[in-house]
């Protein structure tokens, strides 16, 4: 693979400056028949030419692979890890990684030195402005080494995917009593928990254990003390229950809730029109939920769907 890779070479502005100066000197050397001047001119020119050879050599036998990418929230910066291995017998210097097809690449990655035979990783900082799964088609590796007169570069196709979660934002209060909205199964599955949760009317046939006797003694009706337990009365964040028209806002709100719950180590579930995750906790669940939010119908898809819908309805007509 590295053998067939084409390394391009392009003179930098400084090279043109030098060429201009040398041309002027060449004219004057011709004018005054300054032969030694011609020799030294040739010398400086040759140094530039040899430096171009070194610039190409600097990029030869580099193996570029994509590393891991950690998902980020929209509005943050994602860092794409790029692994570079130097397969040559000599060190490489001043390697710059960027990706011109991707205007999101904010900060190109830079490796000052890559010793012979070793590998290093560096990161491309990408401006993650919109949620979704994004793809970087590859990286351009360039170098100004050794003299800065020529820039050698090559294009390395890579599959660098990165995931951007919706930006956590919103002002709605976290739903804590979704149980009442009927998302839980019947109370028969209730297990005794530790935390007092609420009082509800006594249903005949229930165990007498949890009846609030103190209240009964005060003359109140029979009420049953209900206790919250793991996996049950935890909220399920539902996309369809959120008010507001804007899909992105609703997703942001969900992301915020998920983030808060995760930080507080609470259990939570997520329901989107297409997917349902029952309440759980932990890193894996957290990322699974956020991923679902991230890839939920992006702008383009929605438009495409609307268009389809539109055309269908017009056909009907």
């Amino acid at each position: 693979m590295p053998a067939s890779r084409k390394i391009h070479l392009r003179p930098t502005p400084f090279c043109y400056v030098l060429a201009g100066l040398l041309f002027a000197m060449w004219l004057s050397a011709i004018n005054w028949e300054n032969n030694l001047g011609l020799l030294v001119l040739a010398m400086v020119g040759s140094v530039a030419v040899v430096s171009a050879v070194h610039a190409r050599r600097n990029l030869a036998d580099l193996e570029i692979t994509a590393g891991k990418v950690f998902p980020v929230f929209a509005g943050q910066y994602a860092s794409l890890i790029i692994q570079t291995r130097n397969r040559k017998g000599h060190d490489s210097y001043d390697l710059c990684f960027d990706s011109p097809p991707m205007p999101q690449v904010k900060i190109p990655a830079h490796l000052a030195q890559l010793p012979a035979g070793s590998h290093r990783s560096c990161e491309l900082i990408v401006d993650a402005h919109s949620r979704g799964r994004h793809e970087v088609p590859g990286v351009r590796v360039s170098t100004l080494y050794p003299l800065g007169l020529f820039r050698a570069w090559f294009w390395q196709p890579l599959t660098l995917n990165y995931l951007v979660y919706p930006q956590p934002a919103g002002s709605q209060i976290q739903p804590e009593h979704f149980a009442k909205m009927g998302w839980y199964s019947s109370s028969a599955t209730l297990r005794p928990g530790e935390e007092f949760y609420e009082l509800r009317p006594y249903l005949p046939g229930e165990s007498l254990h949890h009846v609030a006797w103190k209240l009964v003694a005060k003359g109140r009706p029979w009420l049953v003390k209900e206790f919250a337990t793991d996996g049950l009365e935890h909220p399920i964040f539902d996309f369809s229950h959120l008010s507001g028209e804007d899909v992105e806002q609703r997703l942001s709100q969900l992301a915020l809730w998920i983030q808060e719950s995760h930080q507080d180590d609470n259990l939570y579930g997520l329901r989107l029109p297409v997917i349902y995750y029952p309440p759980s906790s932990g890193e894996e669940h957290y990322h699974r939920c956020l991923t679902a939010l991230a890839i939920y119908e992006t702008e383009e898809k929605r438009k495409a769907r609307k268009r389809r819908h539109h055309s269908r309805s017009s056909k009907k007509r």
């Binding site: 040739a42 010398m43 430096s51």
Partner: peptide
């Protein structure tokens, strides 16, 4: 860089055509 440039420069010096100017 400089040492390989030297023969190159010498070659150019000897063979690069001079102009009457």
């Amino acid at each position: 860089i400089v040492v390989p440039a030297l023969p190159l420069a010498l070659f150019a010096f000897v063979f690069f055509p001079r102009f009457q100017g």
